[in-house]
């Protein structure tokens, strides 16, 4: 299916958020996730299904003021 990851279209075979992160190479990364604008906790990723057209945000620590 086609999902939007950090603003870029991606074709994934994964059907859960957890699997999609693995597929995208962020399996071990220190990241936080939001699906369609809502926070998804790390512990909930495996139970979170993905649907065609979903918007996934994958964020990491960054410098800030």
């Amino acid at each position: 299916m086609k999902i939007d990851v950090n603003g870029t279209a991606h074709e994934v075979t994964a059907t859960t958020l957890e699997a999609a992160l693995q597929e995208l190479g962020w399996g071990e990364a220190r990241v936080a996730t939001a699906l369609n604008g809502d926070f998804v906790a790390k512990s909930a990723r495996a139970q979170t299904p993905l649907r065609d057209g979903d918007r996934l945000e994958v964020l990491a620590p960054m410098q800030g003021g």
């Binding site: 950090n6 603003g7 990364a29 936080a32 964020l59 990491a60 960054m62 800030g64 003021g65």
Partner: peptide
Amino acid sequence: ATVSLRREAGQGQAFW
């Protein structure tokens, strides 16, 4: 220290 979060681009862990 104030910090933020932005789209993952590979440098997050090192900064943290």
